[in-house]
Nucleic acid binder design. Structure first.
Lengths: 151, 151
DNA sequence: GGCACTAGGTTGGATTTTCCAACTTAGTGA
DNA sequence: TCACTAAGTTGGAAAATCCAACCTAGTGCC
C-alpha cells in the first residue's frame, strides 16, 4: 500500500476532503447549527451526517454543545480551525460561480458594495500572489517532481 | 431524497470534493502529468484514479493529451478551470500547516522571499476581506438561515 | 391522561464505492 | 528472446453510502 507523498494538502483532505464534511461546515458557518437543519440543507443522510460531525469534532474543527438539558439538545459550532476554513468555502463558491453555474444561485458581495472578487496578496510584501509565485521547499527527501517546484 | 440547498459550493464539490480528485490536481499542477506518477505520488489506487481522471476530464478541469502514438502514451494537463483551483490547494496547505502538521512537510514561500502568508483583498476597494465581510444575496427563495447572511 | 410533535439521532438492508493485487496490451531496448 | 515501461483493466473482498423506518425523551395542547 502506498500512502502518497507527505503533504499538508493530503493531511487536510483526510479531514475535510469530502462533500458532506465541507457542506456541514458551510451550514454551521451560516448559523444553522442544529442537526436537522444541517441534514436538510446539505442533503446528507442522517447517519452519514452523524459520522461526519463526529469526525470533524474529533479533528477539532467543530464542537458539539448542549444547549438544553431536558430534553437533551445539541448544536454545533466552528472552532477557530473551523472558522479558518471559511475562506476555502468562499473560494469554492467563486470557482463554482466562475466555471459551473449558468447563473450563481447566490451572489456574494464585499461589504464595500462590490461583487466579491478576491485577490491574494502577500502579507509581507503586499504584492499580489499568483500560484506560480509560490515556491515550495521540500523537507522530506522523497519528493518526485517533474517541473519547477511551484504551486 | 433531498438535494440540499442550491449552492455553487455544493456544485463545485460534486466535481472536486474528493480526496483523490484534488490530489491528482495537485500532482498535475506540480508537473507530474503521467498516470504512474500521479498514482504513485497521491497513493490512489489505479482503478480509482482512472475514474477520477475521466470525470475531471468530463468536467473540463483537466485534459488528456496523447504525447506518443506508438506506443500510445498520455499525459494530463490542467485546463484554465483546473489552474483556477491551485489557490484552493494552497489554502488547504496553509490550513493543514496551521492546524494539523507537527512540522509542515513542505515550506511555501512567496517569490519575495518571505514565508507564504496569504491575505485576501477586495479587487475593487483593495481592503482586506474576512469571511464576515462577505454578504450573500440569495436568488432562490428556499434558503434557510439562522444568522446574518455572511460567510 | 392521551395524542401529536420535536430534536437528535440509530438501525437494517440494499446498493455503490473503494481497495488491492494481479493481469493485459502494445511497444522499446539489449 | 527477455526484461521492462506506461496506462490502464479486471476480479473479488471489504467498506462506505443511501434510504426509510424506527427510537427516545421530552413538550404542548386539549
Amino acid at each position: 500500500m502506498n500512502t502518497g507523498r507527505p503533504c499538508s494538502i493530503a493531511d487536510a483532505l483526510r479531514i475535510v476532503g469530502e462533500r458532506w464534511a465541507l457542506l456541514a461546515i458551510r451550514e454551521i458557518s451560516f448559523g444553522n447549527r442544529r442537526f436537522d437543519e444541517i441534514a436538510r440543507n446539505t442533503g446528507a443522510s442522517r447517519d452519514i451526517l452523524t459520522t461526519r460531525l463526529r469526525s470533524l469534532e474529533a479533528a477539532g474543527v467543530i464542537t458539539r454543545r448542549r444547549y438544553s438539558d431536558r430534553p437533551p439538545r445539541f448544536e454545533y459550532h466552528l472552532t477557530e480551525a473551523g472558522r479558518d476554513l471559511r475562506m476555502i468555502l468562499n473560494l469554492l463558491r467563486e470557482w463554482g460561480d466562475r466555471w459551473l453555474a449558468d447563473e450563481p444561485p447566490v451572489a456574494a458581495a464585499h461589504t464595500c458594495g462590490h461583487p466579491l472578487d478576491l485577490v491574494f496578496t502577500c502579507r509581507h510584501c503586499g504584492a499580489e500572489v499568483r500560484p506560480e509565485d509560490i515556491r515550495l521547499t521540500v523537507n522530506s527527501p522523497d519528493w518526485e517532481l517533474s517541473g519547477p517546484t511551484s504551486s
